[in-house]
Design a protein around this nucleic acid. Structure first.
Length: 430
RNA sequence: GGAAGCGUGGCAGAGCGGUUGAAUGCACCGGUCUUGAAAACCGGCAAGGGCGCAAGUCCUUCGUGAGUUCGAAUCUCACCGCUUCCGCCA
């Protein structure tokens, strides 16, 4: 959520930026009309409330003095505007909730360093790290590799559940676990993150906080709770972890707060039918190790570079070639002010594919969650939030299978994973 | 699932229809005292919002929502959460 103050003072500039940079249009006239009404209603309502409060206090005094007559007179006075006050209060609540609804459906404004653009075509490559390996045989993709090894099974997953799920077994299931373990160990031991175990189901309020609701309900899975309520399966650990300090004022000296959390992620992938239907690239359920930081506003852009580096270090440790891309304004997520994507080289696709997304949300999420810190002067102010995948475990598995494949169909275990694999150096067919 | 109890400021904990945004203690901040510190003493200390250049002033908030009332932290209803006991269970 953007600061309503900038809509009050400089609405045309914001509207302009949002159209040019995010192709997001909103009705400035309607907003302003509501805002004018709000201002008038609020002033009016509050002055009536003040009158009522003053009279009520007086009534109290009369009652104490047993002057029922005097009290009666004042009660009549209040009665004269009671109905008007009630109507004002109701309308004011309506207007404010309409304003809030508009405000909460407006995306974040991109940082000035974010390149302008429409879609992923306009993303800007920042750097490439590592050289794609040259193969002296016909490369296979992870589906062929995994099925040939007899340890990746899409058909049975579809039988058990449906499409876009996978069943991993034996060494590959263990490799998947080892990858997550390696990521968690690295981030906790080398990068100073605190490990978190968090709920996999969250309420609507938490999803509002990070920006998935109200606009993107269709992307989420939910389960009914009680008679009317529901919980949502998390689409990313970002949701429970970023919300840890929602509605709280954290101590300045505790910043930055850095958390790492390994969870499954559940996404309905509505609107992506037909895309990446082969293999494990786009699943309804996948594991991810997520990095989350709550930081002092002045530091958030340095922290974004740092956090991106933490995610990169996993790819480097696994010796996987990748590139870093700055998302253009049109390709960024709803809540982000700036995003770097890490794209890993997949020989099976002969392409770089996203494996991590690292973003600075500035105060956009903090404002929704009401997460603040106390400034040096003691005044509360919003923190900045960041997160990034460090990394998507399922996609990391794909990358390892494809980049470490051998001519005979086996897959070499990356050096850093050997001990986590109990000494196993190569995955063979079973 | 059944029964009982409880949700108040950073924490603990009063208040149970009237001038209470809320006693008191702890924590925290400033001051006096002290060579310094501690102790003692004095003072300060919730958040959000409106109007205002400002000083200030007004409104809202005692789990959430609705209601009763001139007036609600206090009464009513619903919901959410927590605790304890019983049952069940990994």
């Amino acid at each position: 959520m953007l600061d309503i103050q900038i809509f009050r003072s400089d609405i045309n500039a914001v509207a302009d930026t949002l159209i040019k940079r995010r192709r997001h249009e909103f009705d400035v006239k309607a907003f302003q009309a509501l805002e004018t009404e709000r201002k008038q209603l609020q002033t009016n309502t509050e002055s009536l409330q003040a009158q009522r409060n003053a009279l009520s206090k007086e009534i109290g005094v009369y009652k104490k003095n047993k002057d029922e007559e005097g009290a009666k007179k004042l009660m009549l006075q209040v009665g004269q505007f009671a109905e008007q006050l009630k109507q004002n209060e109701e309308r004011l609540a309506e207007v404010q909730s309409e304003l809030r609804a508009i405000l909460s459906s407006i995306p974040n404004v991109p940082h000035e360093s974010v390149p302008n653009g429409i879609d992923e075509q306009d993303n800007v490559e920042v750097r490439r790290v590592g050289e794609p390996r040259q193969f002296n045989f016909a490369v296979r993709d992870h589906v062929d590799i995994g099925e040939n090894l007899g340890q990746v099974d899409f058909d049975r997953a579809a039988k058990i559940t449906g499409s876009r799920f996978v069943l991993l077994t034996s060494r590959i299931a263990k490799l998947h676990r080892a990858l997550a373990q390696y990521m968690l160990n690295t981030h906790t031991e080398k990068h100073g993150y605190t490990e978190v175990y968090a709920p996999y189901m969250v309420n609507a309020n938490a999803l509002f906080g990070t920006g998935q609701l109200p606009k993107f309900e269709a992307d989420l899975f939910s389960v009914p709770v009680g008679d009317a309520g529901k919980y949502y399966l998390i689409p990313t650990a970002e949701v429970p972890v970023t919300n840890i300090f929602g509605d709280e004022i954290v101590k300045l000296e505790n910043l930055p707060l850095k958390f790492v959390c390994h969870t499954p992620c559940f996404r309905s992938e509505a609107g992506s039918y037909g895309r990446d239907t082969r293999g494990m690239i786009r699943q309804h359920q996948f594991d991810k190790v997520e990095l989350v930081q709550l930081v002092h506003p002045e530091q958030s852009y340095e922290r974004l570079e740092e956090l991106t580096g933490h995610a990169e270090s996993i790819l480097q440790g696994l010796d996987l070639p990748y590139r870093v891309v700055t998302l253009c304004s049109g390709d960024m997520g709803f809540s982000a002010a700036k995003t770097y994507d890490l794209e890993v080289w997949l020989p099976g696709q002969n392409a770089y594919r996203e494996i991590s997304s690292c973003s600075n949300f500035e105060a956009f999420q903090a404002r929704r969650m009401q997460t603040r810190y106390r400034t040096e002067s003691g005044k509360p102010d919003y923190v900045h939030t960041l997160n990034g995948s460090g990394l998507a475990v399922g996609r990391a598995l794909i990358a390892v299978l494809e980049n470490y494949q051998q001519k005979d169909g086996s897959v070499t275990v990356p050096k850093v994973l050997v001990s986590l694999m109990g000494g196993l150096e190569s995955i063979e067919p079973i």
